[in-house]
Design a protein around this nucleic acid. Sequence first.
DNA 1: CCATAATATGAGTCATTAATCATATAATCC
DNA 2: GGATTATATGATTAATGACTCATATTATGG
Lengths: 105, 105
Amino acid sequence: MEEQIIALKADILKAMAQPTRLKILELLRNGERCICEIIPAINGEQSNISRHISLMQKSNLVTTRKDGVRVMVKVRDPKIFDILDRVSQILKEQIKEREKLFLEI
Amino acid sequence: MEEQIIALKADILKAMAQPTRLKILELLRNGERCICEIIPAINGEQSNISRHISLMQKSNLVTTRKDGVRVMVKVRDPKIFDILDRVSQILKEQIKEREKLFLEI
DNA sequence: CCATAATATGAGTCATTAATCATATAATCC
DNA sequence: GGATTATATGATTAATGACTCATATTATGG
């Protein structure tokens, strides 16, 4: 596979692979949200959230639109949530296996 | 959702979100591989590949077993490949949309 | 026009990461 | 045992990332 394609795939995954950004994406499962709602919802610092959202926008994970003073954010492609679901499943099974090992001691 | 769970999800995604590691994972689609095969296949530096594999092992993405001098690596949970497939789909559609915009100019 | 609310951005800090070279460890074969 | 092959690891460097504070920008309502 070509280097460029690989790099773009890595960028998509990188844009998801961070706790604050995961929290934002989880919030956006319920649809479009204003940045001003996201900040208190995940108890984040304004400038930090702003940067995380602009990063996800650059990687095309989310889109934004202006609504007066507010900026509304939504996830561009719902397949993002499929990925998040898979990650949850994988994690659940990892935790199960760790518990199994623990019981064997 | 709890901070810890979020952090673990981010770790799984982080372990995938890097070009060299993506290449390794793609190679492992065809099953278990020796590290000594992976190194030339992706044209990597030995110590670098070694570190990337041990990182993916720590995040439980892959497992390893010794076979003589060799270390065989395989992906622990095939759902990893589902994630890679989704990322490919998302990227394809992103590229399509960019082309669409380009044609409109 | 001014005050206010929402967002963005410059600059700085601190931590993490990827990569590489050199060297160590471990298993195998002769 | 000694040479060889495969892998791991310590140390270093350069780049990137997350976060914060202060300040700028933008839109709205009064």
